[in-house]
Design a protein around this nucleic acid. Structure first.
Lengths: 335, 335
DNA sequence: GTGAAAGCGCTAACAA
DNA sequence: TTGTTAGCGCTTTCAC
């Protein structure tokens, strides 16, 4: 009842047992009789005991915290926030804290205090990867890390989804679908471009890829698209990689007097709420970011606690194409 | 050079001084001669010494971590991610970790380990606020907390910005601007509705407010707008509060055959990148989320470290209206 | 200006 | 099944 913080010692005294027993009873470790455990639990409750995590940390050299690394360049997207919330939800259930790790934080004096790290869309840029490895804790990545072997990986079948999307565009009449690509500096970026090329090759049609660096201003995507249509007026499909570029595409196509969904089909590689209420709504691949975040945390927590993750350290993530009006096509003008 | 972790003891031995001296030298505490400090710093560098934060935590009962609480209901916005990155950047400079605290985390068994908490847009809903208060650490809020007295507050002049926006709409010809309001469950929501009413009262025009709960589906905003125009066909301005609702407004107005920027002026209360590349681009209030996040962290760190925050614990945040084509107006049809 | 000793609260060995 | 002992690495008196 006192103002002083309640320690394990207090609980021990109150319950008439030793500190070890309290520790064992509360953590489920060691061998404690059911009656003792109950008594201890009750004592802890009554005294309002809260374990001191710093002491526990010092003793066990664990922190009860995991880190999530986000590349700062590509901050402004729904997608990341969804991943984070998925991760938070799952972490909360395991009583684990989540701290966000930016490049700048790694560059600072102190190291973040984490038991493990999740890296979202790792870049092939090694500088940060190396610093993360120096943390010397398990690493789980969302998508494969180009130059690195993480302890766990969550991956989606992007090739499958893109193929489905391309087939769909073909069915709806697009004969020359172009790709406004995200740079091939993430595994995702590489795989998308590769699959797109393969698909084009398989059809005997030219691969039309235009690319801009990460974090480019939307105006730069507009320019890329205008250049594309100037060069290849026959383009009748655009698949947009970078966040926000699909909105830009709508704008550009309107300027060019092309009707989206009929003259030109438009799709995005990353779904977001802003694609649903455009005119027309834009077909996109739902990357299930919430589930992705959750899956990463599950694998990482297993790894941290020394368990083999259920289903192994390589987890497939289901994703799907959301079909909307921007790829409706028009039977009268095509085929 | 050994694999074993380097402790303060190792540094002390290597530098030929005591642990105390090393601690003082490295932390800038106590009285240490310049030469000793240099020698110690060099020794620490050479050995690759990294202070054990758990030990430090245990001893000082601080964590070197701050928490940011985000209401989960309103997750899907650019705005929050920007706040977070602003916070991370500033925290990194101070070698402070940032953990995200969700309602669920507070509901769990363990308490998050933080020295202080930032609450973004506190809801009048007390349940969470109370749990945060129980953490018994300094609290800084972005915007005033309805039922609570935080230790620090960062606030923007929303009344001023809204007034400016309303005046602008008036100048551009809008005589009956309506408000698609966010619920009055945050200080921001309350103040916006209040100012809007006052402004209307001052002009002797009716206040047209329509409101939907937080986290409503975009379709629900569409319905609200359609109802509004059915009831009041003379509405010639719409100010959109909820994230994404401005995009919906564009869609609805197109269906109603009203030209945005001329027949009806549209503006958003919260700017985001998706408002720039719509057709037309949408006028919005830039709430400077990055600066907001940074300001919150600065105040909180001062508070945590026992300093009086520079400029006091109440920090004004500059915000501004970004004028775009959606409120251009048309001299021929109005005035 | 510097060092020795004490102890933050906890858990892992080991002994009983 | 339970208790005793010994630290985890650090900072903080306090003595020199």
């Amino acid at each position: 009842m006192a103002n002083r913080t309640v320690t394990i010692q207090d609980v021990a005294r109150y319950a008439g047992v030793s500190r070890t027993t309290v520790s064992d009873a509360l953590n489920g470790t060691g061998r404690v009789s059911e009656s003792t455990r109950e008594a201890v639990t009750r004592a802890a409750d009554e005294l309002g005991y809260r374990p001191n995590t710093a002491a526990k940390s010092l003793r066990t050299s664990t922190t009860g915290t995991i880190g999530i690394h986000l590349p700062e360049a590509m901050t402004r997207i729904d997608y990341y926030l969804q991943i984070i919330f998925g991760a938070l939800e799952t972490a909360a259930i395991a009583d684990v804290d989540v701290t966000l790790i930016t490049s700048r934080r790694l560059g600072g004096n102190a190291r973040p205090r984490v038991d493990g790290v999740i890296v979202i869309d790792p870049l092939s840029d090694d500088a940060i990867a190396q610093q993360l490895l120096d943390l010397d804790v398990p690493i789980v990545t969302l998508e494969q890390a180009p130059g690195q072997r993480p302890d766990g990986v969550v991956t989606a079948d992007h090739e499958g989804a893109l193929t489905e999307l391309l087939e769909h565009l073909g069915e709806r009449g697009a004969r020359a679908p172009a790709l406004l690509a995200s740079p091939a500096v993430t595994d995702w970026g590489v795989r998308i471009q590769q699959r797109y090329r393969e698909w084009c090759a398989g059809r005997g049609i030219p691969a039309l890829i235009t690319e801009r660096p990460f974090g480019s201003a939307p105006a730069s995507y507009a320019e890329a698209l205008r250049d594309l249509f100037a060069l290849r007026p026959d383009v009748d499909g655009v698949i947009c990689g970078p966040a926000g570029s699909a909105l830009v595409a709508l704008d550009v196509l309107e300027d060019l007097d092309k009707q989206v969904g009929r003259d030109v089909l438009v799709a995005a590689l990353v779904d977001s709420t802003s694609l649903v209420y455009t005119d027309p709504p834009i077909t996109a691949i739902d990357l299930s970011p919430r589930a992705a975040g959750a899956a990463c945390v599950e694998v990482l927590i297993d790894l941290v606690r020394g368990r083999r993750p259920r289903g192994g350290a390589d987890v497939p993530l289901p994703i799907r194409v959301e079909y909307r009006a921007s790829t409706a096509g028009d039977a009268t003008s095509y085929r």
